[in-house]
Amino acid sequence: MSTTQVTPVSATGAPPAGGNRRPPRVRRPDARGRSAATRRSPGAVVVLIALAVLAVITLLPVLLAALNAVKSPADYVANGPLALPRSFDLTGITSFWQSVDFTGKLLNSVLISGSVAVIAVVLSLLTAYAIGIGRIRGSFGVLAVFMVAFTLPQEALIYPLYVMAKAVGLYDTKLSVIIVLAVLQSAFGTYLLSSVLHTFPAEVLEAARMDGAGTFRVLWSIVMPLTRPTLVVLATFFFIWTWNEFFIPLVLLPSNENQTVSVALGALFGQYTSDPVTSAAAALVGVLPALVFFLVFQRTLMKGVNIGAVK
């Protein structure tokens, strides 16, 4: 049996890591004389330049924020937003950091996103195990329900959730957001993992059962190790989705000391209109964690974007 069968990548028909395997001919020196398909004509260079310009325009907002976040306000006023910084002044960043207690917001976001990622993966795996391997009756119906669950707009759940959280004393606690988001995201995880586990090699399970392994033993020592790549991709996605989540924390975590990075920044909009350097600093400080995730998880993300296609 092969483990490739259980990665989400092959389950959704996507290519292996990197996602962009080219035929080897492209780098061969003799490609020059081959056909029009691989020639670097002047026209081709123009196309490349046009795409590069477009890509730089895409990055421009972030680059401009970085450029202006390190200027002194006087420099910004005197030389305008497009000039390279003539001063290197981190006051914008430090004053923003302190005024919103950004360290606290980062810790809240890490705690909430980490907990949601772990709990949602466990929930997804347990349910998907019953559906995909246990083949319980009505699996398709169960899956359809989960599918609907992650398409439902959060607005159609939020008011009752808000009332319920208040009733049990969980309103304005991180726990309420963790529970709600873990369940909502596990709906997606269950949907994905069920189809992955459905193709799990039957002979492996059969062998384990004949050796007398119980259902939990099979899950723990066979299914989990073999699906680990998928679980890691799922956890990464859950972490980032939760990090970016806006609506649920906005409603359920009103107090300043519980706020996440996303909500804290969203609430800031327009507050610093008179102070462009601090706005740029706020934007830059908000982009940085996301940029770190992107660089750290780039392979996982690109590999797994296809699984996110359903979301």
Partner: peptide
């Protein structure tokens, strides 16, 4: 990968 709220601050600045 940029949180939507951060994208809002970014564009508000621009």
């Amino acid at each position: 990968i940029i949180p939507i709220a951060v994208a809002g601050v970014l564009w508000g600045f621009l």
